[in-house]
Nucleic acid binder design. Sequence first.
DNA 1: CCAAGTTACGAGTCACGTAAGGATT
DNA 2: AATCCTTACGTGACTCGTAACTTGG
Lengths: 277, 277
Amino acid sequence: MEPHLLRTFVAVARGGSFSAAAGRLGFTQSAVSQHVATLEARLGVPLLHRRPVRPTDAGARLLEHAEAILLRIDAARADIARLAGAPADTVAVGASPLAAPRLAAALAEARAQLPRLYVTVTVAGRARVVEAVTTGELDLGLVDSVVAPSDPLRAPSLGLLAAVGVAEDPLAVTLAADHPLAARTGLRLAELVDAWWIDAPDAGAPLGQLRDAAGTDGFRPLLRYDGADVAALLALVAAGHGLAVLPRTALDEAPGVAAVPLTEPRVVHRTELVHAP
Amino acid sequence: MEPHLLRTFVAVARGGSFSAAAGRLGFTQSAVSQHVATLEARLGVPLLHRRPVRPTDAGARLLEHAEAILLRIDAARADIARLAGAPADTVAVGASPLAAPRLAAALAEARAQLPRLYVTVTVAGRARVVEAVTTGELDLGLVDSVVAPSDPLRAPSLGLLAAVGVAEDPLAVTLAADHPLAARTGLRLAELVDAWWIDAPDAGAPLGQLRDAAGTDGFRPLLRYDGADVAALLALVAAGHGLAVLPRTALDEAPGVAAVPLTEPRVVHRTELVHAP
DNA sequence: CCAAGTTACGAGTCACGTAAGGATT
DNA sequence: AATCCTTACGTGACTCGTAACTTGG
């Protein structure tokens, strides 16, 4: 269970290939094979099917544990380094796409107090931002989510981070301007269970969070958009590929898109600032 | 950050001695010294003050991480073993002292279905039971706590376990029979903030949980009882050393002790069954 | 000066790379 | 036949124990 064995195992299991993992890790294929063999010997269980390379049941289980263990090890290292290192004159900040607008405002505030502060900004997926903050790659992260107003903060994924809410925005359903529901002044999620949805986990509200908030398991998407660009998502909406839920603050007027306030259930788009505790 | 280095570091930091840790770990003092030196070199920070041996700030921080990491590694190993191993014909069950009475009932039920089942029962502190279940030493644990009825389950300490509530009991304040409040038919916690308390984290309701439930930070104890024996705790109560809160079901009539129902706030003594997910 | 931690050094072990050996498509 | 993983083997690095050394109370 040494970390380097786990690291290799994770790389192989995720990439589905011993040789590819060897390349990425800077080892030879042979070493990777030996790592996996050692791990399997120590645990007394096959972890990977070969040809094709795919985790066994035990391997899948180990994969979850291993990722958590490695993350925590990185977090520990980052934590110690943070504690020992001199306070840097540069701050690395990350944000998920829908939280990025808030970032500008927050930065302006910090800039007012520390005019010489050098800031690095990175926009990435929510999970990636949280991970980067726990490993110390980023000092601060702004992450958004869709929650009921009373829900507790969601971000401290592994109990390794602290979070404070910085903003809550109302949500709007976006749909093509010629959509039958486009003229409505308010919409309830329940009306939209069987509509055509676009699954845009980064650029829009993730359907999973909507399902949690609405308590249903509908919202089956017909199209998935993996980008982070809101304008591109709106173009898809305008073209009639489906509808998406966005915070109203993220909505500039876009041609061919109608935005209807979401009235029910009571959910909000919350932005949280996460940081090391 | 190899696990054996962390293990040694934890042993040294907890025991306050290199040589003692060496003995417990089966290494020489020299090896232990080298382990710690290696860890400090890798992290670039002193982790322990010597003479006396005491964690530095960085060491204290690492200690928290290390314990979590090691626990998770053990949990992973146990998880895999569980998944691979043949279903045993013996079940190891643990319980915290105040949950133990429920254990008898639960076991009777299991025994009815599987008469040949061999069962091992261990009674230990709540934290120890939860840890033993996560590391696979125990198959099942029964753990009690004091919570508001609406609170979520509390036991899955690290997200590594599943829990189901199995019982909720009302609580009673126990006090010496000649105590001025002994004749009351009900008591509110708020009335008792300034009373003399016995801190009996295993044998009684932990004061910390009472504080959480009551939303105060009173309940300053004058005596701490670290045992797990309810009768012994009641003897202390009868002798006037202070009062304690217990589930009413745990109270046989004890000489010299009065039990007054706890009416406010609405808290219950909940017993949860924890097990691997 | 004694208890306790550190450092020096050598023996055994382990991990990696090279290279040859299967197996599967 | 080509690709991909496994196995054999040698070298270099690492780890631990013995033993001498150092330091603080």
